[in-house]
Amino acid sequence: MSVSFTLKKQLDQFLLDVSCSFPDGVLVIQGESGSGKSTILNCISGLLTPDNGIVAVNNRVVYNSNQSINIPVQNRNIGYVFQNYALFPNMTVEKNILYGLKNQSEYKMKEKREEMLQYMEYILDTFRIGHLRKKYPYQISGGEKQRTALARAIVTKPDLLLLDEPFSALDLKTKKIVYQEFLDLKQQMQMPIILISHDPKESDLFADHRLYLEQGRAVEPFV
């Protein structure tokens, strides 16, 4: 497993020019607000197109400006947890989880429906959100939203998981619990993760590799 990206994109205030490669584990990207952290995630996921560069996940090139490769975001198989979680407000927790599964070609056949539901149950249990299945996002707490968003991103078995400040909206008490859960999850999951965080404590807790951004450039040596 490996992730590598070289990205150049002209932003309003500066040029984002960053290059990084890591074999596995968690890469934590830190930096001031507006330093280009979320832009990196958006470029890797395919939600934004860089001016030029290369993005490869597990040796699969998903973007290469020189070779005109730009795999659509839908086909990149990259999980993304947004800062505000972006849980669909018109769907219950269960339907939020099922949403990604229904797009998977392996579950599109009718006879696979039972299998899909079993897998969903497994995910609901793993993330301890089974009791919330019929609840809407506005009816659950911040920590529960965070777990649901993680479950929704992981349910499609992505090759890479992107987390955009997933702990920033949580209170201190919830953070402590969620940190431990995330550490457990990190052990269980066999996928590379890129985590954006403002908090040096989170970086110390989770980072296998670090990238510190300033005005679109890496200012600290890649560890």
Partner: peptide, 12 residues
């Protein structure tokens, strides 16, 4: 963000 999230989940 809702539409972006749906895209990353593979929706057309």
């Amino acid at each position: 963000a809702y539409e972006k999230a749906a895209k990353t989940l593979g929706s057309s």
